[in-house]
Design a protein around this nucleic acid. Sequence first.
DNA 1: ATAGAATGACTGATCAGACACACATTTCGA
DNA 2: TCGAAATGTGTGTCTGATCAGTCATTCTAT
Lengths: 188, 188
Amino acid sequence: MARPRSDEKRVAILEAATRIIVVQGLSAPTARIAQEAGVANGSLFTYFETKTDLLNDLYLEIKTEMASAILKSHPTDSKPYDEFLHAWKNWMNWAVAHPEKRKALTQLGVSDEITAETRFSGHKTMAPIAELLERSRAHGPMQKSPKGFVVALMTSVADATMDFMTQDPANAKKHSKAGFDALWRMLH
Amino acid sequence: MARPRSDEKRVAILEAATRIIVVQGLSAPTARIAQEAGVANGSLFTYFETKTDLLNDLYLEIKTEMASAILKSHPTDSKPYDEFLHAWKNWMNWAVAHPEKRKALTQLGVSDEITAETRFSGHKTMAPIAELLERSRAHGPMQKSPKGFVVALMTSVADATMDFMTQDPANAKKHSKAGFDALWRMLH
DNA sequence: ATAGAATGACTGATCAGACACACATTTCGA
DNA sequence: TCGAAATGTGTGTCTGATCAGTCATTCTAT
């Protein structure tokens, strides 16, 4: 059998794309991404049919990684508060550890290159976190609001918190707690 | 270069840009914008030196309009709650009445075409609203958090609320109140 | 008559993607 | 065991399309 199309290079391209997108935006030339990945620009298209495919794959890859980071070593039998706080800390830690992935994800998220299907898959990876949120707001003032609205509020508070942590890393821990407390107050 | 004669055409171009950007994104050709505005593509450049200038002007124009809509008929001698709720309602009404401007503003806000100066000017127009927020959180649990963080949280909750109202207009009023209550809980 | 506004064909630059080829690995016949 | 054909991966030059911005010219108001 011929050497399999290496998954390593695919990953290298995705990582290169992340780095380039952060500084050049989504209009970064594929040739620049290929160069950064140490691959010929023609080769890029043997791994991804089109630039759009590359961007969609990247979006999903990062979102999936983020979701699994949030659920890392998740305590199953704890109180909602502890469960949720644990997930929140994981989330914020991931954001601080991977600012470039988060930045790329933000750019991809508002791009119209990302298809509805891709967004839907992305949402599905966040389903366990949404479930956690459901349990946390079960008896609070938002129990009558649509689930999607509460999820949107949580996400937006998380995003704002992550932005601020990235911008002022010295007080990251403090901001993380303040953001969580603010969210918790919102739900109770 | 030639100086523009009519401010009307400048406005027409900005409005056309809003409409086109909503459906085509920021990569929409200037020729398309000019066409929508009923102007020759060369003429566009007698009103705006470059495409980047056009986008920056548009960002500021919309942001300024939004800020003044929020402060419309603002009650000066009321309690913080009433003042803030009034401003919130204005904000949400503006968003529902001008979904395309909001959409364009969102796109422009994340674009790297918008300069730091432009963003700074944009923030300045929101200063009165930030001031209002300051009064509303004066004695709450967030009084120790940096002003910028609290503003960011408010903005993100507002954005999420506006998104949901636009997406589910039938229950817009309900969502508006739910969003405000959530924000108020966050601050108290 | 003239100054400045408006025009639209044109240009140079950029970029996604194609394509023809080079090269590595596996298969297979003798 | 060995060489060569077959199979499939990787390359980089090339091309057609797109687009921001230019400029020689025309229009319009006074």
